[in-house]
């Protein structure tokens, strides 16, 4: 049996579990939609102001809603002992956690991307801004999932670790937020934003290379 086949079984299991907990999965998505729909009501209907803040609003809402769902990434596996079995598995733990993070990303981000045209309409985003938003979300959200997974893995054994995870992680997302909103701002002014996307792509690649080993190590430490 190949490693790919084994890892596919991990992905299938996590998709099945996500499907059976779909009500809980909806919570971060609903939070994201609510923040974005409430914003225009709070700051008024001026299209210029909405357009000016739209990138920042979507990104802040995306980070907070992803943090909301992140705590569950390893918690259930830790509680029911599945994580112990993963640690004792012949499949490398870093490969297993990479699959879990990938499934988490698909389950949490794809619905958000599907909803984004509607939300762009709420915030009066122009087409170039919307394209920049999607590009930054595609490059930036894997970084959020991977770095978030390190924080979640470190605190998986603690009770009510949600606030601690947020305190640990939010400072780490600041560079991402700055480059993402800067790219969307540049797009609104018809300026090139390849530099910002390049930095975000570099961050994504670096995180993809380094985070799985860090997550696996953190999970081992948490189980000790």
């Amino acid at each position: 049996m190949s490693m790919l086949s084994v890892l596919t079984s991990f992905a299938k299991r996590d998709f099945a579990l996500a499907y059976r907990q779909r009500a809980e999965l909806m919570q971060p998505l609903m939070f994201f939609v609510m923040v974005i729909t409430l914003f225009p009501l709070a700051i008024g209907p001026s299209p210029e102001i909405l357009q000016r803040v739209s990138g920042a609003v979507v990104w802040v809402a995306a980070i907070l809603s992803l943090l909301l769902g992140m705590e569950r990434m390893f918690r259930d596996d830790f509680m029911d002992g599945t994580l112990e079995q993963y640690t004792l598995s012949t499949t490398p733990l870093y490969a297993i956690v990479l699959v879990k993070v990938a499934v988490h990303w698909v389950v949490h981000i794809v619905p958000l991307l599907v909803l984004s045209p509607l939300l762009a309409l709420f915030l009066n985003m122009s087409l170039p801004m919307y394209v920049a938003l999607i590009a930054t979300l595609l490059l930036g959200t894997p970084v959020i999932s991977l770095i978030g997974a390190i924080g979640v893995a470190l605190t998986v054994g603690l009770q009510r670790s949600g606030v601690l995870v947020a305190l640990l992680l939010i400072p780490l997302f600041i560079p991402l937020l700055i480059f993402a909103t800067s790219a969307i701002d540049s797009a609104s002014l018809q300026l090139p934003y390849g530099f910002q996307l390049g930095i975000m792509a570099a961050l994504a690649l670096f995180t993809l290379a380094a985070a799985p080993a860090a997550i696996a190590y953190s999970l081992r430490v948490s189980q000790n």
């Binding site: 049996m1 086949s5 084994v6 079984s9 991990f10 299938k12 299991r13 099945a16 579990l17 059976r20 907990q21 259930d76 596996d77 509680m79 029911d80 002992g81 599945t82 112990e84 079995q85 993963y86 004792l88 598995s89 012949t90 499949t91």
Partner: peptide, 30 residues
């Protein structure tokens, strides 16, 4: 742990999956 089977206090399976699903996954994992 290639030839080890550890049975701890925790069940090592998901409460949301059926016995067959859990055991099928465990077999594939090993």
């Amino acid at each position: 742990s290639q030839k080890l089977l550890y049975f701890g206090h925790k069940l090592g399976m998901s409460a949301l999956l059926s016995p067959v699903e859990n055991l099928r996954f465990w077999c594939k994992q090993h």
